[in-house]
Design a protein around this nucleic acid. Structure first.
Lengths: 208, 208
DNA sequence: GTAGCCAACGGCACCCGGTGCCGTTACCGT
DNA sequence: ACGGTAACGGCACCGGGTGCCGTTGGCTAC
């Protein structure tokens, strides 16, 4: 759930005073994902990851606040992109259309990245510790959506409707991801599109 | 989010062979909530709780799988009740009406319990560690709702619509709780009712 | 009353994630 | 060569969580 290429270092890292970094956030993330895929998340210790990356355990925690965080690449960046994209949506565009477009973009990846993005999402959606941790990320994501909806509706972001929009969109996206994991041949963008379009008439379809 | 009075012991505890229990799940929960309210969740260690309850730390973990779990009383029981109530809903009753009724019942408490239920929910919704942990509970709750919706709609529980219903209902309930915490004078049942009714026309209200 | 069954208790040692502290290392500009 | 600077990484420590195992104490049977 983070798009495109991101910075390859914990800090800008130009000609800068001080000792240079030994590795990068994204490289560390890669090593971690590899180990998780092989041994499983719980069975992989932070020491394992650090050793595999050739750094000290203490240093690992300078790149990631927690073992959980290694799974989510640069999520903050993704959130900023999402926020920016929503901010520049045409004012006349229907709310749900703008959201759908933004969410699809948020989940668009280079084909080369897809396989390990799948691994990543499988971890997030299946490993209890990560399911739990991810709630914090989801909350931040929902907030971005809720704030956008709130602006459009002229209500505070913590009002009923904006919050419901946030929950619904997240639910749609999560459902799409579940299906994507269950059917490896399916197209994520299509699944997301379908799920988000279903929101429009969801309760109409249910009312029967 | 668990209703009425529940068993006061970890196991049935009639005339039973073996050493009798020294305390009970619910009493332990009480002591824990008291400490959390005073010192805060993070600042309270399991040793603190165990000491306050006059038991050993090891024993605490025989009553609760984790420190987090002490906050959620007997949630499984609540889930069973919710499931049972939904199962006995009149087949002719509209889906959303049945859900609203069940959710209101699920969140109905003895007035005497309300104050510490408020404390409990404040912890769950505000303490990051509990926000995260609660995702697992929420998922189980959503599943109950999704399964009910699935039965009604004649679809599998992991299909799009049932999942969306689950997410939306949970979102409505969480939003109601947020408002309840923000406005201590408000009536939780009314807030829940309002939020769940809003689901019906939610996207209609948004489409403008 | 005494023997023995049985489950709860709780100490102990251990693992692992996470943090504060601090000395070390390595690149930089002067 | 030197001093500034920032990443590194060891160390000690904390707290949650677990496996193991001996202890406790109420119960039933004899």
């Amino acid at each position: 759930m983070a798009e495109g290429l991101v910075d390859d270092a914990p800090l800008p890292h130009g000609p800068r005073p001080g000792r240079p970094t030994v590795t990068s956030r994204s490289e560390l993330e890669q090593r971690a994902l590899e180990l998780f895929a092989v041994r499983g998340f719980e069975a992989t210790t932070v020491d394992d990851i650090a050793a595999a990356a050739g750094i000290g355990r203490r240093t690992f925690f300078r790149y990631f606040a927690s073992k959980n965080d290694a799974v989510w690449g640069d999520f903050e960046q993704g959130l900023s992109d999402l926020r920016a994209r929503l901010a520049t949506a045409a004012p006349g565009q229907p709310l749900l259309d703008a959201l759908r477009e933004a969410v699809l973009a948020f989940n668009r990846f280079d084909p080369a990245e897809v396989p390990w993005h799948r691994d990543r999402m499988a971890l997030i959606l299946r490993v209890p510790a990560l399911q739990a941790h991810s709630a914090l990320r989801y909350a931040a994501w929902r907030d971005v959506v809720a704030e956008f909806a709130a602006r459009r509706l002229g209500e505070p972001a913590d009002a009923l409707l904006p919050q419901l929009v946030g929950h619904s969109c997240l639910g749609a996206a999560m459902t799409a991801y579940e299906q994507w994991l269950a059917h490896p041949d399916a197209d994520l963008q299509q699944l997301l599109d379908r799920a988000l379009r279903a929101l429009d008439g969801s309760w109409a379809g249910v009312r029967g």
